[in-house]
C-alpha cells in the first residue's frame, strides 16, 4: 500500500512537471502557430480567388462551412470552400473558389496521399486548370492512368459545389 502510494506520487510529480513544461511551450508557440495557419490559409484563398479582396468565414457552430469572397467595396462576389473525397490512397482535400453565379474560379489540392507520379498528378496545375471557368463539372476530363484520383477530385468538388450553391441561395 505504502509502495503504491509512493509510486503514484513519483509518477504524479513527473507528470506535473511535464504538464507544466508543455503548458509553457504551448503559450510560447501558440500565437506563432495560429499566425502561420492564418497566413497559409490567406495565401491559398488568394490563389484560388485572385479577384477577391478579403474573405469572411461563415461558420456553423465552430466549423467553417465556407468563406464569403468580398471585393474592394465589400460586395459579395463569390465563395470559397473545401471539398474532400476518397481517392486511391485516402482523403483528397481540395480548396475551391466559386463565383456567385456558379462558375469555378480555380481549385487547389490542399492535401493528398496518392501514388507519387501517378495519382499525385492531380495536384499539378495541368489538372487543376481544367476546372477554371467551368460551371458544369461533368466536362472535366480525368488524367489518363489516374482515373480514380481524378474522379475523386471532380466528384467531391461537384457535390460540394452544389451543396454550397443551395446553401448560399437559401441564406440570401
Amino acid at each position: 500500500m505504502k509502495e503504491t502510494l509512493r509510486f503514484g506520487f513519483i509518477l504524479g510529480i513527473i507528470c506535473i512537471v511535464a504538464a507544466g513544461l508543455l503548458a509553457g511551450v504551448d503559450i510560447l508557440t501558440k500565437p506563432k502557430i495560429i499566425a502561420q495557419e492564418k497566413l497559409e490559409e490567406g495565401i491559398s484563398l488568394k490563389a484560388i480567388f485572385p479577384s477577391a479582396h478579403h474573405f469572411d468565414e461563415v461558420r456553423d457552430g465552430r466549423e467553417v462551412i465556407y468563406y464569403k469572397a468580398l471585393d474592394n467595396d465589400g460586395k459579395f462576389i463569390g465563395v470559397a470552400f473545401k471539398a474532400s473525397g476518397k481517392g486511391y490512397a485516402g482523403e483528397i482535400k481540395t480548396l475551391v473558389g466559386m463565383l456567385s453565379e456558379g462558375r469555378i474560379t480555380a481549385i487547389k489540392i490542399m492535401s493528398q496521399n496518392e501514388t507519387p507520379g501517378l495519382g499525385s498528378r492531380i495536384a499539378d496545375t495541368n489538372f487543376t486548370a481544367r476546372f477554371k471557368e467551368k460551371s458544369d463539372l461533368s466536362g472535366v476530363e480525368a488524367i489518363t492512368g489516374a482515373t480514380i484520383s481524378s474522379r475523386a477530385v471532380i466528384d467531391s468538388v461537384k457535390k460540394k459545389a452544389e451543396e454550397i450553391r443551395l446553401r448560399v441561395k437559401n441564406e440570401r
Binding site: A18, L21, L22, V25, D26, T29, K32, I33, Q36
Partner: peptide, 13 residues
Amino acid sequence: ATFVTVCELGIKA
C-alpha cells in the same frame, strides 16, 4: 512524450 510534443510545437511554429 513531453519532449516530442515540445519538438512538435516548435516545428509547427
